[in-house]
Amino acid sequence: MQDTLEESRSQLRARLLDWLAGQGQAMQDLLQKVVDIDSGSRNEAGVTAVATALRERLEAAGVAVQFEPVPGYGVLLHAQVPGPAEGAPILLMGHMDTVYPAGTAARRPFRVEDGRAYGPGVADMKSGLVMNVFVAEAFARCGGLKAPLQLFFSCDEEIGSAATRDRIMAKARGARAVLNAEPGRVSGNLVTSRKGSMVVEFEVEGVAAHAGINHAAGASAIEALARKILALHALTDPATGVTANVGVVHGGIVPNMVAPHAKAELDMRFTSETDPDELLAKVRGIVEEESVPRTKGRVTGSRRTMPMKPTPDELLALYQHGARALGFEVQGEFTGGAADSGLTASVGAPTLCGTGPVGGHAHTEREYCELATFVPRAQAVALAILDHP
């Protein structure tokens, strides 16, 4: 009896791997379709169009799909592969929004050169979405699931998931495992821990005056902002993994006026060992300090993404075992980039990130995806699902 079960399992394994092995061109075709759709954060129509293209492929394979509207952002895509309906699920995750503005896809559409695909969001993370869709289809066609397999694609990850974080955490709570298909590292490695991020928007009010006639009567908001930037950047501490970067500034009206107003946006990164509330309190103290007499600073908004706690050794080993059987080796690594995997790990769901095809230069015009990694990375995820206890 045991021999029969093992033989059946071996045959199932072969069917899954063989089917995925034949899908390279179909994966590329679907990738081209979704890359050529602008889906920047808050582009409701674009995000929904990407979701619709993915749904068409899933429903054609018999996978039930539901859209959950998120006004102002698009939709969440929920799907479940036919199979066991009870028990803790395995969750395949991704996000459909990108960092690129409308018109980018028309200006530089999908193209392939020397085995690499280029285009807006091709690595981060439309290739991962496509890969997850094909993994789900493989199980829909071949069977073999021991637990529910669900897909969950979000719509505002690139701007901190403020509109969807509660739903992401609710979806992940109690999951058997979460596999988040952010791009594999350039090295081919997976991501097993991440920093959290915090974006703080703040402004400074000064006192306007003529810069030549009445300079002393003014109080420069720009000078105050500059002093605050220096103090905020001094929060960077390599020993604790905290980094601070004021990446956006605006201020003043004309050169010959002492600036009455200035504003900026601060990006903070931190590890799971850092208390984000304490960090925000330090930022607020710097912003509100009267760094130039008669100026006032205030925080106008903040949003954060949780750090990803380390992946359990067992989940990483499960993926590595399958990858090794396919002929490639991977390790887990830490990254300073934040992702929704931080949210899923924060509710106790065993989470592995960076399972998507290998890519690089995300958020730039040089962004690329290594097409040769599509099939083996899909096969490795399929084996991790198949072999999960």
Rank of each mutant, 00 (worst) to 15 (best):
R55T: 13
N180H: 12
L54D: 03
A51V: 08
V34Q: 03
G332C: 08
V191L: 05
A88M: 02
Q32S: 13
G348A: 07
L77F: 00
H215V: 14
R194C: 07
S41R: 01
L352G: 05
T236E: 05
C142T: 10
A244V: 09
E68S: 12
A181V: 05
S341V: 01
P376K: 06
I159K: 11
F152E: 03
D275S: 05
A14E: 15
H215S: 12
S10W: 09
A45F: 01
G160F: 08
S8C: 10
G160P: 11
E86I: 06
H388Y: 14
M257N: 10
D36W: 10
E201S: 15
R167K: 14
S154M: 09
L5G: 08
A14Q: 15
P260E: 08
T351F: 00
A264P: 10
F110G: 00
Y319G: 00
G247M: 05
Y368A: 02
M131F: 00
D275I: 06
L316G: 05
R377F: 12
K195L: 08
H388C: 14
G359N: 08
G119T: 03
G252L: 01
L20K: 10
E7A: 15
L326Q: 04
M169E: 15
H215E: 12
A163D: 11
A140G: 13
T104I: 05
H388E: 09
V292T: 07
P276S: 11
A325E: 15
A317F: 05
S127F: 08
G143T: 03
A45N: 10
P101T: 10
L235Y: 11
A231S: 12
E329L: 11
L352Y: 01
G24L: 02
A170D: 13
S302N: 13
T4C: 06
V299S: 09
G94H: 05
R176E: 06
H388S: 14
A138W: 02
V122I: 13
V242A: 02
L17F: 13
T344F: 02
G184T: 02
R227F: 01
V248T: 10
A345C: 09
V70P: 00
R108Y: 13
P376W: 11
L318Q: 14
I222K: 04
S154D: 12
F334D: 15
G322S: 03
V199A: 06
E6H: 14
I213H: 13
L230H: 07
A138G: 07
M306K: 12
E7V: 12
H233D: 14
A259F: 02
G184I: 00
S193M: 11
F67W: 09
G128N: 04
V283M: 08
T300S: 12
A378N: 06
M1L: 14
V299I: 12
A221Q: 07
